[in-house]
Nucleic acid binder design. Structure first.
Lengths: 232, 232
DNA sequence: AGTTTATTGTATCGTTGTGAAACAATGGTA
DNA sequence: TACCATTGTTTCACAACGATACAATAAACT
């Protein structure tokens, strides 16, 4: 895997908060630089003649193996606090790159995106500079480099506000799911418990759910229906 | 007034949609390049060691004469459609600038901000490249360069969504205003008429309005109260 | 087969929010 | 004093919502 050369626009980057959902928890994909014990969000750069959105999609596909991903831009970060050339210098050195006057040591303004993906369909793959990439529970994130924690918070804030508005929660679930699973996604994102009966009433009243066969799990209780989102 | 040199970050710009309100209409500040009959949003560039937000505030203060302005970032635009070097080349030439390899001819990713300001307190001032700056009714905007029309629409969309959430409409009004004026701001932004009684009930129930003396305009009818927003 | 238990689906009830309309108050004019 | 235009408030029907209760049912246990 090769390091980006300066066919890329200098001083501009993107970072992505990739949300997944599993075991009743909201999860985020985090890169690690092992030797430095440093954690970061997956990100990348924009080629000179490449649309910004395409650059982000390209990076996401590389990190996740997925092709069509729900993606939303939420904020662009341009403070000077995020200019920490020493960290980037050490990362480059660790990987044996020529460091003097390297374009990645400049100041970067970064565009934040978040993605919602189906946890089970992903095969996380590290990028050229990092050693591993793994899922972390949102409430057990390691300390992240630069302002990446702030990006996560702002992404989640944006997601919460738009959760109902765009009905995007289904991107975190498989094609078919139970009402309970859907509720758990909402609860994980909102960080609060919801009333079961009212949640069901609300979701069904929206008229966007298709009811399928029941799911017999073997549990000694009533079997839940499976639902899918109606395609518009 | 001098043209920016390359103490600025290349390939990054900002553009601002500056909203005002007057005569029951929502208005936007638009720059004009007279000789080219071209219209554009006020924008600018970010200095190498300058926070993005500061750069935008700097530009807004220069354009409006105002110091403290309600400002919100809404989206970053990075498509290739917005790369139109011929237009920028002609603008530079019109102003008698050296054009070959000029850094402003490169591709730009632009960060969109919108501002809400009190129409009456503004003294609009053109920038180094434009000939005039004027208020235009939102529903009578001239054709704008590049994707600036798209920026306006996206800014307004963002503003509509957050109108209630952050109660920011008061930034468009003087310190004291009548309920009717407040309603007119809402109607101008939302683009629809609202029920007078219900609007009043809603606003008063929020508990954020301070009622003052009545305003006697000389009209032969009941005088309205003046209100101001309670300072948090 | 009947009973029990855990879970899901639905109904009910009181409260709150909202749209539409009516009513009341009031500053000026004829 | 009657009238008009506008503003402030109330009313009423209805939708939305939170909390709770009730009904249905799949499997396990007697």
């Amino acid at each position: 895997m090769s390091l980006p050369t300066n066919e890329y626009i200098p001083h501009i980057s993107y970072d992505s908060v990739i949300f997944g959902f599993s075991g009743e928890k909201l999860k985020i994909l985090i890169l690690e630089y092992h030797n430095m014990k440093t954690y970061a969000l997956p990100g990348g750069f924009v080629k000179m003649d490449e649309p910004l959105d395409d650059a982000v999609k390209r990076g996401l596909t590389e990190r996740t193996g997925l092709d069509k991903i729900y993606l939303e831009q939420f904020h662009t970060f341009g403070s000077m606090q995020r200019f920490k050339p020493e960290i980037m210098r050490r990362i480059l050195e660790e990987q044996g790159h020529q460091v003097e006057d390297h374009w990645m040591l400049g100041r970067f303004i970064t565009v934040g995106y978040y993605a919602l993906i189906n946890y089970e369909s992903v095969t996380p793959t590290p990028d050229a500079l990092s050693d591993s990439i793994d899922w972390y529970d949102y409430d057990q994130l390691p300390e992240l480099m630069m302002d990446h924690r702030e990006l996560v918070e702002k992404a989640l804030e944006h997601l919460r506000i738009h959760l109902d508005h765009k009905l995007l929660s289904f991107n975190l679930l498989p094609d078919k799911f139970t009402m309970k699973e859907l509720q758990q996604v909402y609860e994980a994102i909102l960080g609060e418990e919801l009333n079961r009966a009212n949640f069901q009433r609300k979701m069904l009243s929206l008229g966007i759910l298709q009811r399928h066969d029941k799911l017999y799990t073997g549990g000694s209780h009533k079997a839940p229906y499976l639902y899918s989102f109606k395609k518009a």
